[in-house]
Design a protein around this nucleic acid. Sequence first.
DNA 1: GAGTGGTCTAGACCACTGT
DNA 2: CAGTGGTCTAGACCACTCC
Lengths: 271, 271
Amino acid sequence: MTERDWRPRYVQLAEELREKIQRGELPAGEPLPSEPELAEQTGISRTSVRNAIRQLREWGLVRAEQGRGTFVRRPKVRVKRRNIERYQWEKGRVHEPEETRRQTGGTEHDTGLTVNDLKFHAKYQELPAPAEIADVFGIPAGTKLLQRTYWTSAKAEDAPLSMSRSYLIYDLVASNPDLLSDANEPWPGGTHHQLWTVGIEVDRITDHVVARPPAPDESEILRTESGDWVLVLRKVSTSTDGKVVEVADAVYPADRTELVYNIQLNRWSQA
Amino acid sequence: MTERDWRPRYVQLAEELREKIQRGELPAGEPLPSEPELAEQTGISRTSVRNAIRQLREWGLVRAEQGRGTFVRRPKVRVKRRNIERYQWEKGRVHEPEETRRQTGGTEHDTGLTVNDLKFHAKYQELPAPAEIADVFGIPAGTKLLQRTYWTSAKAEDAPLSMSRSYLIYDLVASNPDLLSDANEPWPGGTHHQLWTVGIEVDRITDHVVARPPAPDESEILRTESGDWVLVLRKVSTSTDGKVVEVADAVYPADRTELVYNIQLNRWSQA
DNA sequence: GAGTGGTCTAGACCACTGT
DNA sequence: CAGTGGTCTAGACCACTCC
């Protein structure tokens, strides 16, 4: 006699299917047997079959499509974001001539995407600083901020998506009226150039990386599956006189994103 | 007549409860009404009530405990990991005397934890390089590696947990037999010191940050809730002669972790 | 033992997709 | 139209926790 399997039957089914997927018996893109079919094959109820499939969804292995079927998910290619190099490059570009700036990915903002791949959206609005943001700036809550929201919709299939919210202190940028409206988006040269027009040089940037479940609006824009999480990158820019001048939250679909930080260490012996 | 709400009833219930939680009507740590109770109050079946609660679990708002109840989750405090500073500090410590190294957090490895907070586990084993790891090293798959697995179990309540797997090329470290066994763990001085004993200086470290659902063993060690994700930090160390000398994957519970990278930019004008 | 969440059944109707 | 997954019901038994 082999030993009895005491795990719940839906877990057993989920594991069986997981193994089939990972062995390649059910290749990416292929549909699973339908729910009634699996119920009949295994002799368990459709409710339990659905339970098993929910497990597979939480594991990120399958995607259910209403009216069509449940399909094995293709492992997503993760877009690499090398922020250390990117930030330095963006800053260095400020003093290039405008044509150069317009050409070489002026729309990249925090996304790393070019205007060719996707449709770009920008929305500007004023808003009193929520406590959490005010804290980072080191200003009183309620101070007037300029909030800029950017998001992209893919033109091409599988193009990377992103969504980002950036905050500036309103009075700090108000001296250049061009900065207060989204009419100039995509701004040629990015945030560093915008800040430069009001006399600010960014000295250092701190990235705070966190993962969490998506908010409803994020889940819609990023087209995440149920159970997916998002990576949130809070980028805090500090000026050469030590003040926080921009706080930006970029939200990425976690299964399609990889953040890369390349860190140069000091040598032990310098001859 | 107000407009009819066409959303599924379990979604409506989930949102109602979400609002109650976020308004503080159901404070953290408090139990929700029991499932039969909610079913009776709302007039929907227990199955649908469970569906609503599953939604709240996916949102990370509640935790169900068998036989006790379903409780509002306390928002986790995220442990901040500042790897740029940490790596430089770890490298600089190599040439300090051994007592100093033993005292000042020699056990921190990739975890950032001290031996006082937790029980530390280490396991060494040899293993032929899987293709994915071999790729990173730039060596043929199957080359003998030394795999070191570290994990912690919390002594104190709410102590941070972590799990990490580190890979070294076996032949590269074999000249120091002390490095081949876990008997010396926690090694005083960490990986930089270990490598130094076989004549290697680490020149730069690249962090690759990714989030994904936990593997079963990870979920057990890190005590993640169902639906939680993990943050995976792959740390690739390159020696001064340009070879990859260590690959280490650290796995953190995503809801308790924040990675911080502080990036110094070059100045525009250097007088 | 009473009450909790976890598993499971056998049905039903619906919304959506393809042909 | 038939077939898919999504919602929903009204029950049942179980494992676990706490008194």
